[in-house]
Computed example of a mutant assay.
Amino acid sequence: MVRTNLIISCLVALLASSSLGFAPSSLKPSSLLTSKSTTSLDIFGDALKGAFANDDSLGKRKDEGLSKGPDYNENVTVNGKKVQGAVVGQKLTAVAGRARVKIPVNCQKGDCGTCMVNLNGRKVKACQTPLPKGKANIQTL
């Protein structure tokens, strides 16, 4: 506690001397070395008095993130295996990983074409294609 107060006092003295051009007499080096249990910020006067006055008037904070949670798609199969907990918008490589089916990928950009799969009868690149809503039947080539 004493060390924390000493650090705070030093920072206040440094701030006051650099921004105001002088060091207040109450913050002489001899007074910084005393073991006080509290730190006084009187050099700023009432400048910080109302800094957090409106925190209570903001009301209760809403939960951050998705308001209704992720959008799950329970109608997903990979090579005939049903996938539980697949999230709409995930890349097909991640969805296949949940079913423990390995889809080979190289570039992760969709340039090489090693990750081609059939999604509902259409050939798509699994590293770039997000999981759609509704039925999704993924077949590796």
Rank of each mutant, 00 (worst) to 15 (best):
P70F: 13
G69R: 08
N118W: 07
K135S: 10
G113I: 11
N75G: 04
M116N: 06
V87A: 06
R61S: 14
N118C: 01
E74T: 12
R98W: 00
V124Q: 10
V78G: 02
K91W: 00
V88I: 14
Q90G: 00
T93A: 03
L119N: 06
V87E: 10
E74V: 08
G80A: 12
C115S: 08
G113V: 02
G65R: 07
L131N: 00
E64M: 13
D71T: 10
L131G: 06
G113E: 11
K68P: 00
C115T: 00
D111R: 04
Y72M: 10
R98Y: 05
T114P: 01
V78P: 12
R61D: 13
D55H: 10
K109F: 05
D63M: 12
L66D: 10
D71L: 15
G65A: 13
N120Y: 05
I103L: 05
N79L: 10
G69I: 11
S67M: 11
V88D: 01
N73H: 11
K125M: 08
V95W: 09
A86Y: 06
K102I: 11
V117F: 06
G121Q: 04
G65L: 12
V101R: 09
G97M: 02
G113Q: 01
C107I: 03
P70A: 14
K102F: 14
R122S: 14
K133S: 13
S67Q: 15
L66N: 01
N137T: 09
Y72W: 09
G85R: 13
G59L: 03
E64L: 12
T93N: 06
C107W: 06
E64P: 11
V105L: 09
C127A: 03
K62L: 15
D111K: 01
P104K: 05
A94L: 11
Q108V: 07
M116H: 05
K81C: 00
T93K: 02
R61W: 02
K102A: 14
C112V: 08
G80N: 06
E74M: 13
G59A: 07
M116S: 13
R100Y: 04
D55P: 00
Y72V: 14
T114I: 03
P132Q: 09
N73Q: 02
C127T: 08
Q108K: 05
L58Q: 14
K135Q: 07
N120K: 10
D63T: 14
Y72A: 05
A86H: 04
A99Y: 01
K81D: 01
K60W: 10
V76F: 09
K102P: 02
K123Y: 05
R98C: 06
V105G: 10
L92G: 06
K60C: 06
R122P: 00
D56R: 14
T93V: 15
N120S: 04
K123I: 07
G80R: 07
D111T: 01
K133T: 03
K82M: 04
K82P: 03
V95A: 00
S57M: 09
V117C: 05
G89W: 12
K109M: 15
Q108S: 01
C112L: 05
N137W: 00
M116Q: 13
T77K: 08
G97T: 11
V105S: 08
V78H: 01
V88N: 04
V124Y: 13
Q84H: 08
E74Q: 07
D56F: 10
M116E: 14
G134P: 05
A126I: 03
R122E: 15
D71E: 15
